[in-house]
Design a protein around this nucleic acid. Structure first.
Lengths: 208, 208, 208, 208
DNA sequence: AATGAATGAGATTTCATTCAT
DNA sequence: AATGAATGAAATCTCATTCAT
């Protein structure tokens, strides 16, 4: 939502930078880092190759700036949404729904992030896993509170449970990205997803 | 388990091919397609660069053969395990546990497969999503049977539920790969995972 | 000496041109033609890149203007100093000392000039060797007069002797530039150099 | 002289490396580092661009290998020639004549070396000046011995005298390179040069 | 006259692939 | 079947130059 406003209020150079990132993320989500060449990015952005280098020092910098900027936005938005404590179920809902919606809103980011996260030994993949760790801290905080308040079941490993929830969100995001569904359908899937997650954590079912 | 036997009974050329695939998958799981060069593969395999081309026509062929052969093995093994109908809960368990164990046994495959699956529009990524589709057919068949037999809850979308379960398995596999845990710990995590999945599908809890 | 006066009396545009040349010569003496970029020159001169092109049509023109302008100044100054005939030894002294001092005063010019002079086949290097030829004409004229007047020994090849003398001056200039000596020390070296050159040319020693 | 033998006895890869250096030095002596492109070197050597990189890691490495290898050869040859002490005049003659001849034999090296030596602040130019320093140590050792034995005049600064002598040799080498003289003429110039240097250092002239 | 963002030609370098041995 | 030197297409990146402001 805020994106367009941001684009309008940012200084010109920043806006162009964002524009290039936008174009590049589209290409990089479709193809590998090495299957997208700077010529492609330049053509798509209707700029000359050299112009890209006025905004990013290298192709790598451009590539990781895509992940970096969206990661920061995501974290910031989640923190905003969670700054006042609501009932744990509501906070969980906010968290899960926002994450899912963010991934569907920026599918290019999602795709690139997941691709890098999965690598086992590049310096940047560690950075991607760091975002995951940050998200998990947020999620487990909510879960912990829910357990303390008696709303959620007690789990031996919150970390493990968190990873399962992220697995569900990621799987559903992938599903949503490839489905190309309309708004109503998306809403429906989102609610289905949340009730599945809720079923996992809520007290009062057979597995207590 | 069968791997070594396969290696022994295969003709020499086939065995060398498998050996190269093994070496290559190690490298490709660590780094991007383009950050691994044929020179690296050759060096790691203690072969000359040219020799690789006696077994694979191109680097791409080698790369996708890694995914391809493991995919086939995975599908074959799952089919073997599910050819006789056991109680749905048991089949679900076999399926989930085998998938998880396979990913942990062949983490290089898992990593490469996930990386390709996430791409939105390369011809090979479609192939990777095809495997996912095949797995989902297997899984939904089990779920459907479980529902019919009254063991599982009835879900509006089995596909969606399936994707959630795959999400959980993938998330846990990633977790397992980066954790480097011992056998006991792995077994524990596996059981935790299965009970979480079971909680989702089993009849008789609060969300029915 | 005249430099500051010149700068003051010149029209504004000319002064700015000189200023740019001064800045550029500093950079070009440190690094190759291609290791100094127009951006560097502009930054050092506290000007915009485009501004440089209001004063010089191209980087090459700027580069060779550095050599060209100093060459002209050098020739002019030497001609002034030699326009009235003094005793050959005195003229020789004036010539040698002025050349050496000029090189030390404008080390950047010296360095760039020598660099270009040594190239075997670029059109501009010929221009640099032309300066050398002009200097040699002046020097041999002095030597010839000295021989005619019986002050100097007779040499079979004045050209060759001239090149030796230039070799000595150049060698001493290089020495002086890298030594970073104080005024007294420089004067001493200069005198040592001149007495060595004098020893070569003067009549009345054992080698007559 | 020994060069052809060396080329014959060296292993194949070493010989090809020498061949490339030979070709490259021809080009680099004519034009600046940046005015010679790898394409040019490859074409001249009748090789593909990529092949050059099998022998040298970068253009820079190729360029400085030209200087480096010749420098080493020069030092080695001079050390061989000076290992037994002959009368100082004879050693001086050997030294001066060999240096001069070496420069005329490898004019490309001479040109490139001088070009780099003159730069004031590149790491490689320091290396070039190091060769000069090594040569000066050899020369001053000879001069010092000559003075001790009473053959040469006593100088206040042997370093300064050495630089003058190098200046003469360099000047004469430049002269010789651009003159394209025949063998007899070169011999004559060489003798002229030596007698000039001798005049500088020998005892028994008017300046004692 | 001054600016500096945009340009794109041209350079270096890499590396999959070939092929003579 | 194995080798590895040679190849050259293709990529990244730099930077002199232009031009609208």
């Amino acid at each position: 939502m805020g994106d367009i406003d941001i684009m309008k209020t940012l200084p010109l150079a920043e806006r162009k930078k964002h524009y290039i990132l936008e174009v590049a993320s589209r290409l990089f989500s479709r193809l590998d880092f090495h299957h997208v060449c700077m010529e492609d990015v330049a053509r798509e952005a209707r700029l000359a190759k050299g112009t890209l280098y006025n905004y990013f020092n290298s192709k790598e910098e451009l590539y990781f700036a895509i992940i970096e900027t969206r990661m920061q936005t995501l974290i910031r938005q989640l923190e905003e949404r969670l700054q006042y404590r609501h009932p744990p179920v509501m906070d969980l809902r906010r968290f899960v729904v926002h994450l899912y919606s963010f991934f569907l809103k920026y599918p290019n980011f999602f795709v690139i992030w997941k691709r890098e996260e999965v690598k086992t030994s590049s310096p940047q993949s560690k950075n991607c896993r760091k975002l995951r760790a940050q998200l998990r801290v947020m999620l487990t905080a909510i879960l912990r509170r829910g357990i303390a308040e008696g709303a959620f079941r007690d789990f031996s490993s919150l970390n493990l449970l968190g990873d399962c929830i992220f697995g569900i969100i990621d799987g559903m995001a992938m599903r949503g990205i490839h489905a190309n569904a309309n708004e109503d359908r998306r809403k429906e899937e989102r609610e289905n997803m949340f009730s599945i997650i809720l079923a996992l954590v809520e007290r009062g079912n057979a597995h207590d």
